[in-house]
Every structure is written in C-alpha cells, then in structure tokens.
C-alpha cells in the first residue's frame, strides 16, 4: 500500500511516517501543497494523509482539487477539531477526519478503514488482528480457523470490520445486512449481533462487539478494560 503523507512540520512528518511504515505502508512525504500536487501527479497513491494547515495554502483546497478529478482517498489530519471544521472537511470530500494529536495505532486503524471502503483499491479480504473476512467467499476466520457464522452474522461482521474501533450506527447496519424486500423482525439485528459476539467469545477472539445502546455497535478489543496497547 502506497501512502502520501502531506505534513509541513518536519518532526511530526518524520514521526508519523515512521509509524505508518511500521504499519506496513510505503510512505512518501510532502511538506507543502505544491510538493503534494507534484507527488500525486507523478505516482498512484492508495491513500493520502493530509494536513489542513500548509505553508502555501489550505489542504482543503488541495482536497477539493483532487475531488474534481479521480483522486485517491484522503484522510484529513489536522489541529482544528471544531465541529464546523470537521463538517467542512467531510463536506469537501475527505474520507475520514482525525484531530491531532493521534496515536499511531489509531491512525493505522483509520487508514485501513478508509482502504476497506467499497470501491477503494483493496483486495476482497477485511482483517483486524487475527480476525479475517473474505468478502468474496464470505468466510470468516480467526488464526486461520473458520468461524461458524451464518449469512447475516457475516454481513454484520463485514460492516463492523470496515469501521473497526468505531461505532457503526444501527440504521447503517440494518441497511447493509438486510435486503429491501426482506421482512425483518424488530430484534433480528440484535439477535445476529448477539450470536456474532458469542461465536467470537467461544473462539477466544481478542475482539468483541460492544453495544452502544440507542446508537449502534462497534468492534473493539476484548478483555479487561483499560488494557490499551
């Protein structure tokens, strides 16, 4: 996976590039909008991590330029965390938005999540740690062992894996898992999520499905609370 990091602060660019490289990306750095423009024109990137505040212009302007053509997916990384900044970034066409400071595992997870989006240049496999889902064969495996999951549970897992570590709203999950003509009971989704959680638990997976009642579900590290790497 080839990634372009556009960041004008040298120590931060160097530290982020090192972290992304450890995460398996081939990283190119650009310190200005002009440099980023040249790099993007010269090579095909799978993903761009873009700072908004650049010395020679706004990252948002660059993003808007790329969005007019067939640009790569963009993850905005910025010091501006206000609601209207986030909305402006996503409205301009960013695939995701992260506020500095960010820890490398979180950045890597977001990068992978953007690459997992439908239409992104990615293979058919979704994975998070030892958990893997082949979207072509619809087989889920943990450490290579097949998990006994039904069709809907595979659908739920696919959606949760695409946004791993973040909450997937209920409506989005419903839409993705059920067809339009399917008659769905009021608790069908809860039942599917609950079975998926039990299967993960039975297989001793390091991941579990966390319920945010009234909002949605997310795939998150299992086990004792507070044990964050």
């Amino acid at each position: 996976m080839r990634l372009l990091l556009v960041e004008d602060h040298p120590p931060l660019a160097e530290a982020l590039a090192a972290g992304l490289a450890r995460g398996g990306f081939a990283v190119d750095c650009a310190g200005s909008a002009a440099e980023a423009r040249r790099s993007a024109a010269g090579a095909a990137y799978d993903l761009v991590v873009l700072d908004i505040g650049l010395p020679d212009g706004s990252g948002l302007a660059l993003l808007a330029e790329w969005r007019r053509g067939d640009g790569p997916p963009v993850l905005l990384l910025t010091a501006r965390g206000e609601l209207h900044d986030r909305v402006a970034g996503l409205d301009t066409g960013a695939d995701d938005y992260l506020v500095k400071p960010v820890e490398i595992p979180e950045l890597l997870a977001r990068c992978r999540a953007v690459l997992r989006r439908p239409g992104a240049r990615t293979g058919p496999a979704l994975s998070e740690g030892p958990l893997m889902l082949d979207t072509a064969t619809r087989n889920a495996t943990l450490h290579g062992e097949r998990l006994p999951l039904a069709r809907r549970e595979i659908g739920v897992l696919g959606q949760l894996l695409r946004r791993s570590g973040r909450v997937v709203p209920r409506a989005q999950l419903e839409q993705a898992v059920y067809g339009f003509d399917e008659v769905v009971g009021p608790n069908a989704l809860e039942a599917a999520v609950s079975r998926l959680r039990k299967v993960l638990e039975a297989a001793d997976a390091p991941l579990t499905v966390v319920t945010v009642r009234g909002v949605g579900w997310m795939l998150a590290p299992a086990g004792e609370a507070g044990k964050r790497p």
Partner: peptide
C-alpha cells in the same frame, strides 16, 4: 497540538 502529536507518534 503539533508537539503533542509528535510525542504521541513517537511513543509508538
């Protein structure tokens, strides 16, 4: 935020 971001990234 920028120096904090450097710190957070270097921890990794």
């Amino acid at each position: 935020r920028t120096p904090l971001a450097v710190l957070a990234a270097r921890i990794d």
